[in-house]
């Protein structure tokens, strides 16, 4: 569905060099710190910027040459951009109906009502959470085959986040061939949603892993200095000092559990992945 091969983009000192793939029917997460290059990847994928090098193809076409007919099949929710704040939701409904032949107005209106979005209010008077909900509903309203969501749950409280994630999950279940690329700062959102994850840091992909594998095989080892000195370093991805010992990140936690009985092993999550793989010390082991 989406292939990015050696995408290069330079902004001053920042250099992006990324390759990734989103197969049909797959939900892919892109995680990384602020400024890691997530938004640049999304912009390149949507043909909003011109790459300095490499190739980005969507539906088998160069992203830069996507036409209106191709964009009908893409649903987008960007974290800091949407319909003009001077419009009301009622007007947005009319506009969407003109843009998308497959716009499901009844379902869209129902979803907006369920999420408590007022139709007669200008979007500039919406709360941050309401705007976030509308952006996601807009992306889901026309049967898109590719969903690109940049921080779709930003600004939402726990309950609203659950509603939005449920609507995304429901969409994925009803549209099995639909692919998604999602970025989020909230690890639990991605853990419960994505099939695989890419970790991006300073413009480079540091790691690509299936979410199941990440959650089952990756882990944190809390060891003192003496135990650390005895540890087999082959499967340690990173480490950082902690108290009198080290906190180590591994992709083979079972290996250490079997060979070093008694050491403290914790389940690894996306937050740990970001924290351990992108810290300066962590990267010295790679």
């Amino acid at each position: 569905m989406v292939t990015i091969e050696g995408l290069k983009k330079q902004y001053g000192a920042f250099a992006l060099d990324v390759s990734l793939e989103i197969p049909a029917g797959r939900i892919t997460g892109l995680v990384g710190k602020n400024g890691a290059g997530k938004s640049t990847v999304i912009k390149a994928l949507l043909g909003l910027i011109r790459p300095d090098g490499g190739k980005v193809t969507v539906f088998g076409k160069e992203a830069a040459s996507l036409r209106a007919a191709d964009r009908l099949k893409i649903g987008t929710a960007l974290s800091n951009s949407g319909f003009s704040a001077y419009l009301k939701l009622e007007e947005v409904v009319r506009i969407l109906a003109k843009f998308y032949p497959d716009f499901n107005e009844t379902a869209f209106r129902r979803a907006c009502e369920e999420m408590g979005l007022p139709f007669g209010k200008q979007l500039q008077h919406y709360s941050t959470g309401m705007k976030a909900k509308l952006r996601v509903l807009t992306a889901l309203c026309h049967g898109a085959k590719l969903l690109v969501m940049d921080e779709p749950t930003t600004g939402l409280d726990v309950e609203a986040r659950g509603e939005v994630l449920d609507s995304i999950r429901r969409y994925a279940a009803e549209h099995e061939d639909c692919s998604m690329l999602i970025t989020s700062h909230i690890a639990s959102d991605l853990e419960g949603l994505c099939d695989d994850l890419y970790l991006i840091h300073e413009g480079k992909i540091l790691l690509h892993e299936d979410t199941d594998v990440l959650l089952s095989e990756y882990g944190l080892l809390r060891v003192d200095a003496e135990t650390y000195a005895r540890l087999d370093p082959r499967y340690l991805l990173s480490r950082r000092p902690e108290g009198n010992g080290y906190l180590c990140f591994t992709d083979q936690k079972r290996y250490y559990a079997e060979n070093y009985p008694g050491i403290l092993i914790e389940k690894g999550g996306i937050d740990d992945l970001i924290l351990m793989m992108t810290s300066a010390e962590g990267r010295t082991l790679q």
């Binding site: 912009k43 043909g47 209106a68 800091n80 319909f83």
Partner: peptide, 9 residues
């Protein structure tokens, strides 16, 4: 940014 993600070239 958003407008150019709609079905518009």
């Amino acid at each position: 940014l958003f407008l150019m993600t709609l079905p518009v070239d």
